[in-house]
């Protein structure tokens, strides 16, 4: 029986190794083959700096918006009953299934050169497509479920008893949320933020389509790597990929801590 167990384990390890370790190793190997000085120099290129700056900016905006609205949506979906709740709940998972390219494409249809809403945005003087707002919009869509799906089960496990207790003790709705409910959600909240951030860092398809990938202007880190490879600028591509990969890895390690704390707080409640 024992050899079967070990066979199973080695299959799993091999599978994970091919899927995760190999690409990571390839990036590290590729980057260092170009030589450290070349790498550092490549990273200082204005296009690279600009693309990373843009990626981080988009990340921060998206995390801030989902931090507020994701919490709100999760709260309403768990605590209130209304018509269409089940539908909204189902539609929430759409970003998991739908290709980001389609999302980018729909935004072009809406705000592109001959877009449906183009006259409106033009009149208001807003530039959505091929600009930062469109890129944020696309990233918001693809990162929508993470925060909400993380908070909902925690809110449900938390229940209403402590909130009711706070109400009988005189706390207003906002005081109850701030002092009682939110502290109980905090680890799940941080984990949700982390996941949203990680997903936003890696977004490529939707952003490429809506931004048009204009060099040095609407290029995010992922779009830059794609173009650098295309242009055979291997030093730039490898070093940017290595940096982005490292950021993601650190993020995953940090949010894992949040995840464990969040799980623990659910267990304590049930």
């Amino acid at each position: 029986m024992n050899w079967r167990k070990w066979l199973l384990i080695s299959i799993v390890v091999g599978y994970m190794g091919i899927l995760i370790i190999a690409p990571l190793g390839a990036i590290v190997f590729g980057a260092f083959r170009e030589g450290v000085p070349a790498m550092l120099e490549a990273l200082q290129h204005p296009h690279v700096l600009r693309s990373f700056g843009l990626t981080i900016l988009i990340c921060l905006v998206v995390v801030a918006i989902h931090g507020i609205f994701g919490t709100l949506v999760a709260w309403v979906l768990v605590r209130h009953q209304f018509m269409g709740k089940a539908l909204i709940n189902r539609l929430l998972d759409l970003p998991f299934a739908m290709s980001p390219v389609i999302v980018g494409f729909t935004l072009i249809v809406l705000f592109g050169r001959n877009g449906v809403l183009k006259p409106l945005t033009e009149a208001m003087g807003w530039q959505i497509a091929f600009a930062l707002p469109g890129m944020i919009w696309a990233t918001l869509f693809v990162t929508l479920p993470f925060m909400i799906r993380e908070l909902m089960p925690v809110l449900e496990a938390f229940g209403r008893k402590q909130e009711e207790a706070a109400a009988t003790l005189g706390a207003s709705g906002w005081q109850t949320f701030r002092l009682v409910t939110f502290p109980a959600l905090r680890w799940a909240f941080l984990y949700g933020l982390g996941l949203t951030c990680a997903r936003a860092l890696g977004e490529f398809g939707a952003v490429l389509v809506i931004s048009g990938g204009i060099q040095g202007r609407t290029e995010t880190a992922t779009v830059y790597i794609f173009r650098a490879l295309d242009d055979r600028q291997y030093a730039g591509a490898y070093s940017a990929a290595l940096l982005l990969g490292a950021i993601s890895l650190v993020l995953v390690l940090v949010i894992d801590v949040f995840h464990r704390r969040s799980q623990k707080s659910i267990e304590q409640r049930t």
Partner: peptide, 20 residues
């Protein structure tokens, strides 16, 4: 009136203490 304005003290079966 809402609960905040009623001036009652309530003790729940499962304590409902603020756990944090």
């Amino acid at each position: 009136l809402n609960p905040q304005a009623r001036d009652v003290g309530f003790v729940f079966q499962n304590y409902a203490l603020f756990e944090h």
